[in-house]
Structure formats: structure tokens, C-alpha cells
Simulated assay, not measured.
Amino acid sequence: MDVIERVRSGVLGHFGTDRAGVDSASVTFLGLEPIEILRLVSGDHVHYLTLGGSRHPMGDPGDLLADPVKGPRAELTLTLHAGLGAAAGLARTLGVLAASPAVEGVVLQTDALLDLSEPIWRDAPFTAVLLGASDIPEIELPEPAEPVRYLTVTPVTATEAAWVRLRGADALREAWAEAGIDVRDPNRGVAQL
């Protein structure tokens, strides 16, 4: 079983579904293998999950030779309330984010702030994302490869991104909690920072 099939099996098992209950889209970038975006509905939420970013380990872009086996591997998940909007352009954006380690040498990790400089989906006020820990368990790969981790993607506005740069990711999460902001609502307001 290859890496992507292991990841697919692991993540679908986490949600207790199979391929039949999942929509998918594919995003392709010149010179890279396709990134697949899975979309599945679970209760009141819709989950978008990448498949393909973990094919190869992430490494330091300054290294002359990348290790083809060792190194962290990550995929992304974005969860929104079902039926509240979002969609047009979201699969492409998640594909861009998942491909960023291969394209730009970015290492995807908890608390990373990734600025897209354009709306995450059509007409969205969010132009950046904050990565966080996910409740999806790590997906083990054969030794010596490291397991694949899913990271949550939280859309943020330019103001919120500036707050993260100034005060850190935890400070923004605290501001959301104090203001009662549900970051899974695509029509949410912005915390008063």
C-alpha cells in the first residue's frame, strides 16, 4: 500500500466512512503529483481534507539533498459548518497550501501562519490561515518514515494575521475564545484585537 492509500484509509476510518460517502476534487501543479481534496459531511460540519502533500517528507529548503524517506509529513483539514457558504475556490486554495512544502520549501507545522494574499474562497474576508493540531490520529507509515500528521486550517483575516505576527497564535486563539467566535463559521466576525 502506498503512502496516499494509507492516509486515505486512515482518515476515512477516523470519520467512519468509505470512498462512497466522499466527494473529491483534484488540483494539479506543474511538475508535481496531483493533490486530492476530499469533502465529507459529518453531522452539522463539512470537512475538507487534503491527500497528496504527504507523499514526500518535508525538509529544510537549505539542504542540498532532500531525504526521500525521513522527515515530517503533513496533510491539512478544514472544517466548516455545513450549509453556511464557502466553496468556490476552496479546493484550489487547500491544494496550494498542501503543495507549499514541495513548491516553496515550507514546513507545515502547528502555529504556522501562511499568508495567501488573496481570498481563501471567492469573496471571503480571509487571506491567510493558521495551522493547528488536529484530532485526527497520526497515520503510521513503515519504518523509517515518520507518521503523517493532519493539521487544522483556520482561516484568518489580514488583521488577525498581523495579531499572530505580533502576539503569537495562542493570543489570537484566546481572543477568539473570549469573544465567543466560532472559527468554523465561514461568515464569522473578527475578534476585537
Rank of each mutant, 00 (worst) to 15 (best):
A102K: 05
G31N: 03
V69S: 04
R149W: 04
V156K: 06
P186C: 10
Q192V: 14
G31M: 03
E104Q: 12
P34Q: 09
M58F: 08
D123K: 14
G53Q: 00
P142Y: 15
E138T: 13
T157A: 09
A99G: 00
E174G: 01
V69N: 04
D182V: 09
L38E: 05
L166Q: 12
E138Y: 01
A171P: 02
R55S: 02
L141Y: 00
L78C: 07
L108W: 04
M1W: 12
I136Y: 12
Y150A: 03
A179G: 14
G189M: 10
E138L: 06
T77H: 13
V190Y: 12
T17R: 08
V107E: 14
D23G: 00
A161F: 10
H14V: 00
L65M: 13
G59A: 14
Y48Q: 01
L108P: 00
Y48F: 10
D170Y: 10
P155T: 08
T77F: 05
S26Q: 08
A162F: 04
L131P: 02
G189C: 02
P125A: 07
V148L: 07
L193I: 09
V41K: 15
D182T: 11
L78S: 10
V183Y: 14
L90F: 04
R6F: 03
A133M: 14
V106Y: 04
A98G: 01
E143R: 13
E36G: 02
R73A: 00
S42H: 11
L40Q: 07
P125M: 01
K70V: 14
P137C: 03
A112K: 12
T110D: 04
D60Y: 15
Y150C: 01
L114M: 11
I181N: 07
I181M: 02
D185G: 14
A124Q: 11
N187H: 11
P137N: 05
A179P: 13
V183E: 14
V22E: 01
A169L: 15
D18P: 00
D115T: 12
P147N: 08
R39Y: 00
S26H: 11
E36S: 01
D111Y: 05
F15M: 09
I120F: 09
A82C: 04
D182Y: 13
F15W: 13
G189Q: 08
A169Q: 15
E160M: 04
D111P: 04
I37A: 09
A99Y: 05
A88P: 13
L172R: 08
G10N: 06
T154M: 11
L151V: 10
P155S: 12
A112I: 02
A175G: 10
A177G: 05
F29V: 03
